[in-house]
Design a protein around this nucleic acid. Structure first.
Length: 546
RNA sequence: GCCCCCGUAGCUCAGUGGAUAGAGCACCGGCCUCCGGAGCCGGGAGCAUGGGUUCGAGUCCCGUCGGGGGCGCCA
Protein backbone atom coordinates (compact mmCIF):
# COMPACT_ATOMS: atom_id res chain seq x y z
CA UNK A 1 0.00 0.00 0.00
CA UNK A 2 3.02 2.27 0.13
CA UNK A 3 4.63 1.28 -3.15
CA UNK A 4 4.17 4.73 -4.64
CA UNK A 5 5.70 6.38 -1.58
CA UNK A 6 8.68 4.05 -1.53
CA UNK A 7 9.29 4.66 -5.20
CA UNK A 8 8.99 8.43 -4.93
CA UNK A 9 11.22 8.58 -1.91
CA UNK A 10 13.98 6.73 -3.74
CA UNK A 11 13.59 8.85 -6.87
CA UNK A 12 13.78 12.09 -4.90
CA UNK A 13 16.82 10.94 -2.97
CA UNK A 14 18.60 10.19 -6.23
CA UNK A 15 17.63 13.56 -7.69
CA UNK A 16 18.85 15.40 -4.59
CA UNK A 17 22.17 13.58 -4.66
CA UNK A 18 22.57 14.58 -8.31
CA UNK A 19 22.16 18.18 -7.14
CA UNK A 20 24.98 17.75 -4.66
CA UNK A 21 23.07 17.05 -1.46
CA UNK A 22 25.05 14.49 0.50
CA UNK A 23 22.48 13.35 3.02
CA UNK A 24 19.07 14.06 1.56
CA UNK A 25 16.11 14.08 3.90
CA UNK A 26 12.92 13.38 2.08
CA UNK A 27 9.58 13.78 3.78
CA UNK A 28 6.41 13.01 1.93
CA UNK A 29 3.12 14.33 3.16
CA UNK A 30 -0.49 14.42 2.19
CA UNK A 31 -1.49 17.93 1.14
CA UNK A 32 -4.45 19.32 3.05
CA UNK A 33 -6.03 20.52 -0.18
CA UNK A 34 -6.82 17.63 -2.57
CA UNK A 35 -6.30 20.05 -5.46
CA UNK A 36 -2.59 19.87 -4.60
CA UNK A 37 -2.49 16.19 -5.41
CA UNK A 38 -1.94 13.09 -3.29
CA UNK A 39 1.64 13.51 -2.17
CA UNK A 40 3.70 16.62 -1.67
CA UNK A 41 7.34 16.98 -0.78
CA UNK A 42 9.11 19.90 0.82
CA UNK A 43 12.53 18.59 -0.28
CA UNK A 44 13.33 21.75 -2.21
CA UNK A 45 12.37 23.98 0.73
CA UNK A 46 14.52 22.00 3.11
CA UNK A 47 17.65 21.82 1.00
CA UNK A 48 17.55 25.20 -0.80
CA UNK A 49 19.47 27.01 1.92
CA UNK A 50 22.46 24.69 1.91
CA UNK A 51 22.69 24.79 -1.87
CA UNK A 52 22.22 28.56 -1.89
CA UNK A 53 19.47 28.56 -4.47
CA UNK A 54 15.87 29.67 -4.38
CA UNK A 55 13.51 26.87 -3.30
CA UNK A 56 11.39 27.07 -6.42
CA UNK A 57 14.45 26.96 -8.66
CA UNK A 58 15.72 23.89 -6.84
CA UNK A 59 12.31 22.30 -7.18
CA UNK A 60 12.41 22.81 -10.94
CA UNK A 61 15.86 21.24 -11.13
CA UNK A 62 14.77 18.25 -9.10
CA UNK A 63 11.77 17.85 -11.31
CA UNK A 64 13.93 17.73 -14.42
CA UNK A 65 16.06 15.08 -12.78
CA UNK A 66 13.24 12.93 -11.44
CA UNK A 67 12.53 9.54 -12.95
CA UNK A 68 9.03 8.41 -12.07
CA UNK A 69 7.20 5.21 -12.84
CA UNK A 70 4.05 6.49 -14.59
CA UNK A 71 2.09 3.43 -13.53
CA UNK A 72 2.46 4.65 -9.94
CA UNK A 73 2.69 8.41 -9.96
CA UNK A 74 2.48 11.49 -12.09
CA UNK A 75 3.93 14.87 -11.23
CA UNK A 76 1.71 17.91 -10.81
CA UNK A 77 4.58 20.40 -10.92
CA UNK A 78 6.00 22.95 -8.51
CA UNK A 79 3.62 24.95 -6.37
CA UNK A 80 3.53 27.53 -3.60
CA UNK A 81 6.89 28.38 -2.04
CA UNK A 82 8.57 25.32 -3.57
CA UNK A 83 6.51 22.21 -2.96
CA UNK A 84 6.50 19.51 -5.59
CA UNK A 85 3.17 17.78 -5.94
CA UNK A 86 2.37 14.31 -7.18
CA UNK A 87 -0.75 12.38 -7.96
CA UNK A 88 -1.38 8.65 -7.80
CA UNK A 89 -1.83 7.02 -11.19
CA UNK A 90 -5.32 5.59 -11.61
CA UNK A 91 -3.82 2.21 -12.41
CA UNK A 92 -2.03 2.21 -9.06
CA UNK A 93 -5.18 3.07 -7.14
CA UNK A 94 -7.17 0.46 -9.06
CA UNK A 95 -4.58 -2.19 -8.27
CA UNK A 96 -5.41 -1.79 -4.57
CA UNK A 97 -8.72 -3.53 -5.17
CA UNK A 98 -6.86 -6.59 -6.41
CA UNK A 99 -4.64 -6.48 -3.33
CA UNK A 100 -7.61 -6.27 -1.01
CA UNK A 101 -9.42 -9.19 -2.64
CA UNK A 102 -6.31 -11.36 -2.65
CA UNK A 103 -5.13 -10.54 0.85
CA UNK A 104 -8.57 -10.31 2.39
CA UNK A 105 -8.08 -10.57 6.18
CA UNK A 106 -4.43 -9.75 5.64
CA UNK A 107 -5.25 -6.41 4.02
CA UNK A 108 -3.58 -3.85 6.26
CA UNK A 109 -0.88 -6.18 7.51
CA UNK A 110 2.68 -5.05 7.06
CA UNK A 111 6.13 -5.72 8.45
CA UNK A 112 6.76 -2.16 9.57
CA UNK A 113 7.53 -3.31 13.12
CA UNK A 114 8.70 -6.82 12.31
CA UNK A 115 11.18 -8.08 14.89
CA UNK A 116 10.09 -5.61 17.56
CA UNK A 117 8.98 -6.93 20.92
CA UNK A 118 6.47 -4.82 22.77
CA UNK A 119 4.85 -5.24 26.17
CA UNK A 120 1.78 -3.25 27.08
CA UNK A 121 0.64 -3.25 30.66
CA UNK A 122 -2.93 -2.07 30.99
CA UNK A 123 -5.98 -2.15 33.25
CA UNK A 124 -4.03 -3.63 36.24
CA UNK A 125 -6.93 -2.74 38.49
CA UNK A 126 -6.64 -3.65 42.14
CA UNK A 127 -8.50 -6.90 42.85
CA UNK A 128 -10.44 -5.24 45.63
CA UNK A 129 -13.60 -4.77 43.61
CA UNK A 130 -15.17 -5.24 40.20
CA UNK A 131 -13.75 -3.44 37.15
CA UNK A 132 -15.27 -0.03 36.71
CA UNK A 133 -15.66 2.16 33.66
CA UNK A 134 -12.29 3.81 34.22
CA UNK A 135 -10.63 0.47 33.57
CA UNK A 136 -12.88 -0.01 30.57
CA UNK A 137 -11.26 2.80 28.61
CA UNK A 138 -7.81 1.42 29.41
CA UNK A 139 -8.99 -2.02 28.32
CA UNK A 140 -10.29 -0.73 24.99
CA UNK A 141 -7.20 1.35 24.25
CA UNK A 142 -4.65 -1.20 25.41
CA UNK A 143 -6.23 -4.07 23.56
CA UNK A 144 -6.65 -2.06 20.34
CA UNK A 145 -2.98 -1.04 20.55
CA UNK A 146 -1.96 -4.68 20.93
CA UNK A 147 -3.98 -5.57 17.84
CA UNK A 148 -2.46 -2.71 15.86
CA UNK A 149 1.13 -3.52 16.83
CA UNK A 150 0.57 -7.14 15.84
CA UNK A 151 -0.95 -6.01 12.54
CA UNK A 152 2.28 -4.16 11.88
CA UNK A 153 4.32 -7.28 12.49
CA UNK A 154 5.49 -6.68 16.05
CA UNK A 155 5.37 -9.32 18.74
CA UNK A 156 3.14 -7.59 21.24
CA UNK A 157 2.03 -8.85 24.64
CA UNK A 158 -0.72 -7.41 26.79
CA UNK A 159 -0.22 -7.84 30.51
CA UNK A 160 -2.33 -7.34 33.61
CA UNK A 161 -0.36 -6.68 36.79
CA UNK A 162 -2.30 -8.09 39.73
CA UNK A 163 -1.72 -6.35 43.06
CA UNK A 164 -2.53 -9.41 45.14
CA UNK A 165 -0.14 -8.73 47.98
CA UNK A 166 0.58 -6.08 50.54
CA UNK A 167 -1.49 -3.97 52.90
CA UNK A 168 -4.57 -3.77 50.78
CA UNK A 169 -5.14 -7.54 50.98
CA UNK A 170 -5.20 -7.32 54.74
CA UNK A 171 -7.44 -4.27 54.69
CA UNK A 172 -9.79 -5.94 52.24
CA UNK A 173 -9.95 -9.01 54.48
CA UNK A 174 -10.82 -6.89 57.53
CA UNK A 175 -13.49 -5.03 55.54
CA UNK A 176 -15.09 -8.31 54.47
CA UNK A 177 -14.88 -9.65 58.00
CA UNK A 178 -16.70 -6.57 59.31
CA UNK A 179 -19.49 -7.05 56.76
CA UNK A 180 -19.63 -10.74 57.59
CA UNK A 181 -19.93 -10.11 61.30
CA UNK A 182 -22.59 -7.47 60.69
CA UNK A 183 -24.58 -9.96 58.66
CA UNK A 184 -24.41 -12.38 61.57
CA UNK A 185 -26.09 -9.70 63.65
CA UNK A 186 -22.85 -8.60 65.23
CA UNK A 187 -22.73 -5.00 63.93
CA UNK A 188 -19.08 -4.22 63.22
CA UNK A 189 -17.46 -1.07 61.85
CA UNK A 190 -15.50 -1.26 58.61
CA UNK A 191 -11.92 -0.35 59.53
CA UNK A 192 -10.41 3.07 58.82
CA UNK A 193 -9.54 3.38 55.14
CA UNK A 194 -11.34 0.11 54.39
CA UNK A 195 -13.56 -0.84 51.50
CA UNK A 196 -17.23 0.11 51.61
CA UNK A 197 -18.53 -1.08 48.28
CA UNK A 198 -21.87 -2.80 48.17
CA UNK A 199 -20.25 -5.62 46.19
CA UNK A 200 -18.39 -6.59 49.37
CA UNK A 201 -21.63 -6.90 51.20
CA UNK A 202 -22.94 -9.46 48.75
CA UNK A 203 -19.57 -11.19 48.79
CA UNK A 204 -19.72 -11.42 52.58
CA UNK A 205 -23.22 -12.86 52.31
CA UNK A 206 -22.09 -15.55 49.90
CA UNK A 207 -19.28 -16.45 52.29
CA UNK A 208 -21.72 -16.65 55.16
CA UNK A 209 -24.10 -18.80 53.11
CA UNK A 210 -21.42 -21.25 52.07
CA UNK A 211 -19.17 -21.33 55.13
CA UNK A 212 -21.39 -20.40 58.04
CA UNK A 213 -19.57 -19.43 61.22
CA UNK A 214 -16.16 -20.77 60.20
CA UNK A 215 -14.56 -17.29 60.08
CA UNK A 216 -16.20 -16.20 63.31
CA UNK A 217 -14.65 -19.09 65.14
CA UNK A 218 -11.12 -18.28 63.96
CA UNK A 219 -8.77 -15.80 65.56
CA UNK A 220 -9.49 -12.39 64.01
CA UNK A 221 -6.14 -12.00 62.21
CA UNK A 222 -6.41 -15.43 60.74
CA UNK A 223 -9.98 -14.85 59.58
CA UNK A 224 -9.08 -11.51 57.99
CA UNK A 225 -6.15 -13.07 56.16
CA UNK A 226 -8.23 -15.95 54.87
CA UNK A 227 -11.10 -13.71 53.80
CA UNK A 228 -8.68 -11.28 52.14
CA UNK A 229 -7.21 -14.07 50.08
CA UNK A 230 -10.66 -15.35 49.19
CA UNK A 231 -11.92 -11.89 48.18
CA UNK A 232 -8.85 -11.22 46.04
CA UNK A 233 -9.29 -14.50 44.19
CA UNK A 234 -12.95 -13.76 43.72
CA UNK A 235 -12.22 -10.37 42.17
CA UNK A 236 -9.45 -11.64 39.94
CA UNK A 237 -11.89 -14.17 38.54
CA UNK A 238 -14.38 -11.35 37.98
CA UNK A 239 -11.76 -9.28 36.18
CA UNK A 240 -10.89 -12.14 33.89
CA UNK A 241 -14.54 -12.70 33.14
CA UNK A 242 -15.30 -9.03 32.46
CA UNK A 243 -12.31 -8.59 30.19
CA UNK A 244 -13.17 -11.69 28.25
CA UNK A 245 -16.67 -10.37 27.73
CA UNK A 246 -15.09 -7.14 26.51
CA UNK A 247 -13.04 -9.16 23.97
CA UNK A 248 -9.78 -8.23 25.65
CA UNK A 249 -7.16 -10.94 25.34
CA UNK A 250 -4.45 -10.55 27.94
CA UNK A 251 -1.27 -12.44 27.07
CA UNK A 252 -0.34 -12.73 30.72
CA UNK A 253 -1.44 -12.02 34.27
CA UNK A 254 1.54 -11.09 36.39
CA UNK A 255 0.93 -11.59 40.11
CA UNK A 256 2.65 -9.40 42.63
CA UNK A 257 2.48 -12.30 45.07
CA UNK A 258 4.73 -14.34 42.76
CA UNK A 259 7.22 -11.51 42.82
CA UNK A 260 7.13 -11.43 46.61
CA UNK A 261 7.48 -15.21 46.85
CA UNK A 262 10.80 -14.81 45.07
CA UNK A 263 11.69 -11.87 47.34
CA UNK A 264 12.17 -9.89 44.17
CA UNK A 265 11.43 -6.58 45.92
CA UNK A 266 14.30 -7.17 48.37
CA UNK A 267 16.62 -8.18 45.57
CA UNK A 268 15.78 -4.96 43.74
CA UNK A 269 16.55 -3.07 46.95
CA UNK A 270 19.92 -4.83 47.25
CA UNK A 271 20.72 -3.91 43.68
CA UNK A 272 19.84 -0.28 44.31
CA UNK A 273 21.97 -0.31 47.46
CA UNK A 274 24.86 -1.87 45.58
CA UNK A 275 24.64 0.98 43.09
CA UNK A 276 24.59 3.55 45.89
CA UNK A 277 21.08 4.71 45.08
CA UNK A 278 19.63 4.17 48.57
CA UNK A 279 20.00 6.33 51.66
CA UNK A 280 18.44 6.20 55.10
CA UNK A 281 16.63 9.00 56.86
CA UNK A 282 14.50 8.89 60.00
CA UNK A 283 14.74 5.11 59.96
CA UNK A 284 13.25 4.82 56.45
CA UNK A 285 15.02 3.91 53.23
CA UNK A 286 14.79 6.30 50.27
CA UNK A 287 15.70 5.76 46.66
CA UNK A 288 17.74 8.60 45.19
CA UNK A 289 15.43 9.30 42.28
CA UNK A 290 16.37 12.98 42.40
CA UNK A 291 19.75 12.01 40.98
CA UNK A 292 18.04 10.52 37.95
CA UNK A 293 15.64 13.20 36.84
CA UNK A 294 12.92 13.32 39.48
CA UNK A 295 12.31 16.32 41.69
CA UNK A 296 12.41 14.30 44.87
CA UNK A 297 13.44 11.03 46.50
CA UNK A 298 10.89 8.42 47.49
CA UNK A 299 10.52 6.07 50.40
CA UNK A 300 10.88 2.41 49.48
CA UNK A 301 11.05 0.93 52.97
CA UNK A 302 9.18 2.51 55.87
CA UNK A 303 10.67 3.06 59.29
CA UNK A 304 8.62 0.00 60.28
CA UNK A 305 10.72 -2.01 57.87
CA UNK A 306 7.88 -2.65 55.42
CA UNK A 307 8.22 -2.00 51.72
CA UNK A 308 6.01 0.71 50.23
CA UNK A 309 4.07 -0.19 47.09
CA UNK A 310 6.84 1.44 45.09
CA UNK A 311 9.48 -1.20 45.86
CA UNK A 312 7.63 -4.21 44.38
CA UNK A 313 6.63 -1.97 41.48
CA UNK A 314 10.31 -1.33 40.84
CA UNK A 315 10.96 -5.05 40.99
CA UNK A 316 8.12 -5.66 38.58
CA UNK A 317 9.43 -3.13 36.07
CA UNK A 318 12.90 -4.53 36.39
CA UNK A 319 11.45 -7.91 35.54
CA UNK A 320 9.87 -6.42 32.43
CA UNK A 321 13.23 -4.96 31.39
CA UNK A 322 14.90 -8.33 31.92
CA UNK A 323 12.37 -9.96 29.64
CA UNK A 324 14.02 -8.12 26.76
CA UNK A 325 11.28 -5.99 25.27
CA UNK A 326 12.16 -3.17 22.89
CA UNK A 327 9.26 -1.13 24.15
CA UNK A 328 7.61 -1.38 27.57
CA UNK A 329 4.40 0.57 27.62
CA UNK A 330 2.39 1.29 30.78
CA UNK A 331 -1.10 2.65 30.42
CA UNK A 332 -2.07 4.39 33.64
CA UNK A 333 -4.77 6.69 34.92
CA UNK A 334 -4.17 10.45 35.02
CA UNK A 335 -3.71 10.39 38.80
CA UNK A 336 -0.42 8.54 38.33
CA UNK A 337 1.45 11.29 36.60
CA UNK A 338 4.14 11.56 39.28
CA UNK A 339 4.81 7.90 38.53
CA UNK A 340 6.39 8.72 35.15
CA UNK A 341 9.49 10.48 36.41
CA UNK A 342 9.55 8.34 39.50
CA UNK A 343 9.65 4.96 37.79
CA UNK A 344 11.82 6.18 34.91
CA UNK A 345 14.34 7.50 37.43
CA UNK A 346 14.26 4.25 39.39
CA UNK A 347 15.03 2.26 36.24
CA UNK A 348 17.89 4.59 35.38
CA UNK A 349 19.20 4.15 38.92
CA UNK A 350 19.25 0.41 38.26
CA UNK A 351 21.36 0.99 35.16
CA UNK A 352 18.60 0.19 32.69
CA UNK A 353 17.98 2.13 29.50
CA UNK A 354 14.92 4.04 30.64
CA UNK A 355 14.04 5.08 27.10
CA UNK A 356 12.60 1.61 26.60
CA UNK A 357 9.94 2.44 29.18
CA UNK A 358 7.06 4.67 28.17
CA UNK A 359 4.35 5.50 30.64
CA UNK A 360 1.27 6.99 29.08
CA UNK A 361 -1.55 8.55 30.99
CA UNK A 362 -5.03 7.85 29.83
CA UNK A 363 -7.35 10.71 30.71
CA UNK A 364 -10.48 10.01 32.67
CA UNK A 365 -14.00 9.55 31.38
CA UNK A 366 -17.33 11.09 32.28
CA UNK A 367 -20.45 9.08 31.64
CA UNK A 368 -23.32 11.19 30.40
CA UNK A 369 -26.93 10.21 30.71
CA UNK A 370 -29.48 12.62 29.22
CA UNK A 371 -26.64 15.11 28.91
CA UNK A 372 -25.96 15.02 32.64
CA UNK A 373 -22.78 13.58 34.17
CA UNK A 374 -23.33 10.36 36.09
CA UNK A 375 -21.87 10.91 39.53
CA UNK A 376 -19.26 8.46 40.62
CA UNK A 377 -17.47 8.31 43.92
CA UNK A 378 -15.10 5.51 44.68
CA UNK A 379 -14.98 6.36 48.34
CA UNK A 380 -18.73 6.10 48.78
CA UNK A 381 -18.68 2.87 46.82
CA UNK A 382 -20.76 4.43 44.04
CA UNK A 383 -19.09 3.20 40.92
CA UNK A 384 -20.41 2.18 37.57
CA UNK A 385 -19.13 -1.27 36.86
CA UNK A 386 -17.75 -2.13 33.47
CA UNK A 387 -20.20 -5.01 33.18
CA UNK A 388 -23.14 -2.66 33.71
CA UNK A 389 -21.99 -0.42 30.90
CA UNK A 390 -21.48 -3.37 28.54
CA UNK A 391 -24.90 -4.65 29.47
CA UNK A 392 -26.46 -1.34 28.60
CA UNK A 393 -24.67 -0.23 25.42
CA UNK A 394 -23.08 -3.44 24.14
CA UNK A 395 -19.44 -4.34 23.58
CA UNK A 396 -19.18 -2.84 20.08
CA UNK A 397 -20.39 0.61 21.06
CA UNK A 398 -18.40 0.65 24.29
CA UNK A 399 -15.11 -0.33 22.67
CA UNK A 400 -15.54 2.07 19.80
CA UNK A 401 -16.59 5.01 21.97
CA UNK A 402 -13.53 4.65 24.18
CA UNK A 403 -11.33 5.12 21.12
CA UNK A 404 -13.14 8.18 19.80
CA UNK A 405 -10.90 10.70 21.54
CA UNK A 406 -7.18 10.96 21.84
CA UNK A 407 -5.90 9.25 24.95
CA UNK A 408 -4.61 12.60 26.24
CA UNK A 409 -8.11 14.07 26.19
CA UNK A 410 -10.83 13.43 28.77
CA UNK A 411 -13.71 11.56 27.23
CA UNK A 412 -17.41 12.24 27.58
CA UNK A 413 -19.24 8.99 27.05
CA UNK A 414 -22.82 9.66 25.98
CA UNK A 415 -24.76 6.55 26.93
CA UNK A 416 -27.88 7.53 24.96
CA UNK A 417 -25.82 8.20 21.82
CA UNK A 418 -24.01 4.88 22.15
CA UNK A 419 -27.34 3.05 22.21
CA UNK A 420 -28.94 4.98 19.39
CA UNK A 421 -29.27 3.21 16.06
CA UNK A 422 -28.80 6.17 13.78
CA UNK A 423 -26.10 7.82 11.73
CA UNK A 424 -25.08 10.26 14.47
CA UNK A 425 -23.79 7.25 16.39
CA UNK A 426 -20.25 6.78 15.01
CA UNK A 427 -20.09 3.05 15.56
CA UNK A 428 -23.37 2.46 13.78
CA UNK A 429 -22.34 4.70 10.93
CA UNK A 430 -19.24 2.60 10.30
CA UNK A 431 -20.97 -0.73 10.82
CA UNK A 432 -23.88 0.32 8.61
CA UNK A 433 -21.58 0.88 5.63
CA UNK A 434 -20.29 -2.68 6.05
CA UNK A 435 -23.80 -4.12 6.31
CA UNK A 436 -24.98 -2.11 3.32
CA UNK A 437 -22.25 -3.65 1.17
CA UNK A 438 -23.28 -7.09 2.33
CA UNK A 439 -26.83 -6.30 1.28
CA UNK A 440 -25.69 -5.41 -2.23
CA UNK A 441 -24.36 -8.92 -2.71
CA UNK A 442 -27.50 -10.40 -1.20
CA UNK A 443 -29.62 -8.33 -3.53
CA UNK A 444 -27.54 -9.35 -6.55
CA UNK A 445 -27.62 -12.96 -5.38
CA UNK A 446 -23.88 -13.07 -5.91
CA UNK A 447 -21.01 -14.35 -3.84
CA UNK A 448 -18.48 -11.57 -3.14
CA UNK A 449 -15.67 -11.71 -5.71
CA UNK A 450 -12.34 -13.20 -4.69
CA UNK A 451 -10.39 -11.89 -7.64
CA UNK A 452 -10.57 -8.61 -9.49
CA UNK A 453 -11.36 -7.77 -13.07
CA UNK A 454 -12.14 -4.74 -15.27
CA UNK A 455 -10.60 -2.46 -12.65
CA UNK A 456 -9.58 0.00 -15.35
CA UNK A 457 -13.24 0.99 -15.55
CA UNK A 458 -13.06 2.54 -12.08
CA UNK A 459 -12.48 6.11 -13.21
CA UNK A 460 -15.24 8.11 -11.52
CA UNK A 461 -14.00 10.74 -9.05
CA UNK A 462 -15.92 9.13 -6.20
CA UNK A 463 -14.40 5.76 -7.02
CA UNK A 464 -10.88 7.09 -7.08
CA UNK A 465 -11.43 9.05 -3.87
CA UNK A 466 -12.69 5.89 -2.20
CA UNK A 467 -9.58 4.04 -3.38
CA UNK A 468 -7.38 6.77 -1.91
CA UNK A 469 -9.07 6.25 1.44
CA UNK A 470 -8.56 2.50 1.36
CA UNK A 471 -4.88 2.99 0.59
CA UNK A 472 -4.48 5.09 3.74
CA UNK A 473 -5.05 2.21 6.13
CA UNK A 474 -1.31 1.47 6.40
CA UNK A 475 -0.50 5.12 7.03
CA UNK A 476 -3.17 5.36 9.70
CA UNK A 477 -1.91 2.26 11.50
CA UNK A 478 1.63 3.61 11.43
CA UNK A 479 0.30 6.84 12.96
CA UNK A 480 -1.47 4.93 15.70
CA UNK A 481 1.69 2.96 16.43
CA UNK A 482 3.81 6.11 16.64
CA UNK A 483 1.43 8.05 18.81
CA UNK A 484 0.49 5.01 20.92
CA UNK A 485 -3.11 5.92 20.27
CA UNK A 486 -5.71 3.96 18.26
CA UNK A 487 -7.97 6.98 17.94
CA UNK A 488 -6.90 7.83 14.36
CA UNK A 489 -8.36 4.53 13.27
CA UNK A 490 -11.87 5.67 14.21
CA UNK A 491 -11.37 8.87 12.23
CA UNK A 492 -10.33 6.81 9.20
CA UNK A 493 -13.28 4.43 9.57
CA UNK A 494 -15.73 7.29 9.57
CA UNK A 495 -14.13 8.72 6.45
CA UNK A 496 -14.14 5.41 4.62
CA UNK A 497 -17.81 4.90 5.49
CA UNK A 498 -18.71 8.43 4.40
CA UNK A 499 -16.83 8.07 1.13
CA UNK A 500 -18.47 4.74 0.47
CA UNK A 501 -21.91 6.29 0.87
CA UNK A 502 -20.93 9.11 -1.51
CA UNK A 503 -19.67 6.61 -4.08
CA UNK A 504 -22.78 4.50 -3.71
CA UNK A 505 -25.02 7.50 -4.19
CA UNK A 506 -23.23 8.71 -7.32
CA UNK A 507 -22.34 5.43 -8.97
CA UNK A 508 -24.91 2.74 -9.54
CA UNK A 509 -23.51 -0.67 -8.84
CA UNK A 510 -26.21 -3.08 -9.90
CA UNK A 511 -28.12 -2.58 -13.16
CA UNK A 512 -25.13 -1.06 -14.93
CA UNK A 513 -23.28 -2.61 -17.90
CA UNK A 514 -21.89 -6.01 -16.92
CA UNK A 515 -18.18 -5.17 -16.90
CA UNK A 516 -18.62 -1.95 -14.97
CA UNK A 517 -20.87 -3.74 -12.50
CA UNK A 518 -18.16 -6.35 -12.00
CA UNK A 519 -15.55 -3.68 -11.37
CA UNK A 520 -17.79 -1.82 -8.93
CA UNK A 521 -18.69 -4.99 -7.06
CA UNK A 522 -14.97 -5.59 -6.65
CA UNK A 523 -14.58 -2.08 -5.24
CA UNK A 524 -17.49 -2.68 -2.86
CA UNK A 525 -15.90 -5.90 -1.69
CA UNK A 526 -12.53 -4.20 -1.18
CA UNK A 527 -14.21 -1.49 0.88
CA UNK A 528 -16.00 -4.09 2.94
CA UNK A 529 -12.74 -5.87 3.66
CA UNK A 530 -11.08 -2.61 4.69
CA UNK A 531 -13.97 -1.67 6.99
CA UNK A 532 -13.98 -5.08 8.58
CA UNK A 533 -10.25 -4.96 9.25
CA UNK A 534 -10.44 -1.46 10.68
CA UNK A 535 -13.30 -2.42 12.96
CA UNK A 536 -11.58 -5.65 13.99
CA UNK A 537 -8.50 -3.72 15.08
CA UNK A 538 -10.79 -1.69 17.32
CA UNK A 539 -12.23 -4.95 18.62
CA UNK A 540 -15.60 -4.26 17.01
CA UNK A 541 -17.71 -6.64 14.94
CA UNK A 542 -18.64 -5.96 11.33
CA UNK A 543 -22.26 -7.11 10.94
CA UNK A 544 -23.68 -8.42 7.65
CA UNK A 545 -27.05 -6.91 8.42
CA UNK A 546 -28.47 -4.68 11.10
C1' G B 1 3.95 26.52 45.74
C1' C B 2 5.45 22.56 42.17
C1' C B 3 3.93 19.07 38.23
C1' C B 4 0.61 16.92 34.25
C1' C B 5 -3.56 17.34 30.61
C1' C B 6 -6.68 20.69 27.91
C1' G B 7 -8.28 25.59 25.42
C1' U B 8 -9.76 25.24 17.28
C1' A B 9 -17.21 26.70 14.30
C1' G B 10 -23.19 27.41 18.78
C1' C B 11 -21.83 22.01 20.72
C1' U B 12 -18.40 17.45 20.40
C1' C B 13 -13.86 17.03 18.19
C1' A B 14 -9.88 16.09 13.72
C1' G B 15 -5.55 18.50 12.40
C1' U B 16 1.53 15.74 16.01
C1' G B 17 6.39 22.06 11.46
C1' G B 18 3.72 23.20 5.35
C1' A B 19 0.00 25.86 0.78
C1' U B 20 -6.89 28.90 1.25
C1' A B 21 -7.48 25.26 9.15
C1' G B 22 -11.48 20.41 8.31
C1' A B 23 -15.57 16.69 9.97
C1' G B 24 -19.91 15.23 12.89
C1' C B 25 -24.02 17.14 15.66
C1' A B 26 -27.39 21.20 15.82
C1' C B 27 -29.82 24.88 12.36
C1' C B 28 -31.82 26.06 7.18
C1' G B 29 -32.91 24.35 2.15
C1' G B 30 -33.02 20.37 -1.53
C1' C B 31 -33.07 14.73 -3.10
C1' C B 32 -37.22 8.50 -2.36
C1' U B 33 -42.07 5.03 -9.17
C1' C B 34 -34.33 4.54 -8.23
C1' C B 35 -29.12 -1.27 -5.58
C1' G B 36 -30.73 -0.34 2.59
C1' G B 37 -33.36 7.55 3.28
C1' A B 38 -29.71 3.94 9.24
C1' G B 39 -28.24 7.55 3.06
C1' C B 40 -26.80 11.77 -0.32
C1' C B 41 -26.28 17.17 -2.05
C1' G B 42 -25.97 22.47 -0.73
C1' G B 43 -25.69 26.70 2.98
C1' G B 44 -22.29 30.15 8.17
C1' A B 45 -18.81 30.96 11.59
C1' G B 46 -13.19 29.57 14.55
C1' C B 47 -7.05 28.47 16.24
C1' A B 48 -7.93 31.88 24.44
C1' U B 49 -3.92 35.76 24.75
C1' G B 50 1.26 38.23 24.42
C1' G B 51 6.14 37.26 22.88
C1' G B 52 9.94 33.94 20.60
C1' U B 53 12.26 30.00 17.18
C1' U B 54 11.55 29.01 11.64
C1' C B 55 11.73 30.18 4.65
C1' G B 56 6.94 28.60 6.99
C1' A B 57 3.49 27.86 13.67
C1' G B 58 -3.20 25.60 15.42
C1' U B 59 1.26 22.41 15.83
C1' C B 60 7.72 23.73 18.90
C1' C B 61 9.69 27.22 23.26
C1' C B 62 8.60 31.11 27.24
C1' G B 63 4.88 34.16 29.75
C1' U B 64 -0.43 35.40 30.91
C1' C B 65 -5.59 34.06 31.42
C1' G B 66 -9.30 30.12 31.83
C1' G B 67 -10.92 24.71 32.73
C1' G B 68 -9.64 19.74 34.69
C1' G B 69 -6.35 16.52 37.52
C1' G B 70 -2.14 15.25 40.69
C1' C B 71 1.61 16.20 44.44
C1' G B 72 1.56 10.30 51.52
C1' C B 73 6.69 6.27 55.47
C1' C B 74 -1.65 4.71 51.28
C1' A B 75 -2.04 1.47 46.82
Amino acid sequence: MRRAHTHLSAALTAALKAQGVELPTVTLEKPRDPAHGDIATNAALVHAKALKVAPRALAEKLLAELELDPSLLTCEGVAGPGFINFRFASAYLQSLVGQALERSEEFGRSDLLAGKRILIEFVSANPTGPLNVVSARAAAVGDALCRIYRELGAECDGEFYVNDAGNQVDLLGRSVLAQYETLRGNVTEIPEGGYHGEYLNSFARSVLDSSGDVYHDMPEDEAAAALGKLAIEHHIAMHRHSLEAFRVQMSSWFHESALRDKRAEWKALEELERRGAIFEKDGAKFVLTSEFGDTQDWVVVTSQGKPTYFLPDIAYHLDKFHRGYDLILDILGPDHHSYITKMTAAMSALGEDAKRLEIMLLQHITLLRDGEPVKMSKRAGQIIEMDELLEEVGVDAARYFFLLRRTSTPLDFDIELAKRQSDDNPVFYAQYAHARIASIFRRAELEPPTSASHLDLLTHDEELTLLRRLRELNDVLADCADSRDPHALTVWLREVAAQFHRFYHHCRVLTTPAELQTARLCLCRATQIALKRGLALCGVHAPMEM
